[in-house]
Design a protein around this nucleic acid. Structure first.
Lengths: 232, 232
DNA sequence: CAGTATCCCTTATGATACTG
DNA sequence: CAGTATCATAAGGGATACTG
């Protein structure tokens, strides 16, 4: 743990914990419903397992979460103190949505995009049978170019290998564009109209697809008005 | 700057900035009204000037604050993006107030206590003449044992040397106790009744003194109920 | 699945001194 | 007042391999 601030101010004391790299992202994963070690890892692919392990221990010691082992199953559960971090994480996300500028290319991780999408599937909007959505990001790294989302019976599975089932709708888009749609910076309809995002498959499925996903929780955040141009 | 998270998630992007040691405390100082480099330093006594300088630059680049130089006077001012960090800093302070346990001895910095108090003087409650409040923390480091607060004409000056003026009221208390009063964990009246905090001076000033200070902004935060004891 | 164990290495930070 | 310059250290963190 890094050196304490030596201030009694509760902001400083809280930041001694929350300051540390990855910590609040681990909390974000837990707030999003991650419960198992490898769940969490999927949302934090660039975090080493040893560091995740350490963070989980620190958060446990801090009283933010609890490690439960029941029948060989390990579960991490937020305590009341941990649950009260939700407004903080959300406020930070809102702030980031409003004030972080352009994303860098390195920020555009298709794995995380699919992982986030799979958590926001509106299963009630889906056809009543198994549905496979393919994603192709022509500009992405070849190894992360093709993805499949298998939607069935309230489950959503992310695959980076062909799952074998036929694809019902194929979504093709530049990665940056797809992220922009996901984050609410561009609407599905605008992205489709411009031709940046293309859908292939039966017309009724193509029409329905946008409704299968509720967007990122931050998509609806109002953006700051750009500095108003002076009226002439 | 430490390595980016490589996530497009706005929480991650925001934390790339806010994550870094001291950063949010610098913002806290700005939100509390600090405007000049050395103002900020007083609220961040353990931060080296070079690091403060670097943080100010990073925050400027991030669009959180603006450096203004007018007539040789340098001023740091929060931008709209910076001002929108207020709810985050406050939420973190509230969380810290509720969930951080006992403070360590190293957290009890009399300098910061006095610095915080001087910002929360209710000048309208003061006698209409210059008032000097002395503080003595018998258990503190000898060099930080005695402090003076000179209150006059809407100004409040913190001194760690005898300012020369006669002391109107002398407050003597264990440092931890005084911090507890300040943070709202113990009321003035309880602390005085128990004898932990003692006031010396004319009775009317002793009676009036608690009203001279509005407590820390977090003093009024409701504490979580302790886990209820099981009824027998 | 749920983590530990290593190991190296960058780099963030603290401390101090100094300048316009 | 408002910072810069310099330096040594610790250690936080990334990568990888391995275990029950």
């Amino acid at each position: 743990m890094s050196a304490p601030y030596r201030q009694f101010c509760p902001v400083a004391k809280a930041m001694e914990l929350l300051d540390e790299r990855w910590t609040l992202l681990v909390v974000r994963e837990l707030l999003s419903g991650g419960r198992h070690f490898n769940d969490l890892r999927r949302g934090l692919p660039r975090m080493s397992p040893s560091l995740l392990s350490r963070r989980l221990q620190q958060l446990t010691r801090a009283g933010v979460l609890e490690r439960r082992e029941e029948g060989g199953q390990v579960e991490y559960v937020l305590t009341p103190a941990g649950a009260e971090l939700r407004p903080i994480v959300e406020a930070i996300g809102v702030w980031g949505t409003r004030w972080i500028g352009e994303l860098g290319d390195a920020d555009l991780d298709p794995k995380l995009l699919l992982w986030d999408m799979h958590r926001h599937v509106d299963h009630d909007a889906l056809p009543p049978r198994r549905t496979v959505v393919g994603f192709r990001f022509p500009d992405a790294d070849p190894r992360a170019r093709d993805w499949w989302l298998v939607l069935h019976g309230g489950e959503a599975d992310v695959c980076d290998d062909d799952p074998g089932h036929p694809v019902d709708v194929l979504v093709t888009a530049p990665l940056r564009r797809m992220v922009a749609v996901w984050m609410g910076d561009v609407s599905w309809s605008a992205a489709l109209r411009s031709g940046d995002v293309r859908l292939e498959g039966p017309p009724e499925l193509r029409r329905a697809l946008p409704a299968w996903f509720t967007l990122s929780s931050f998509a609806a955040v109002p953006r700051p008005r750009p500095v108003a141009a002076q009226a002439p």
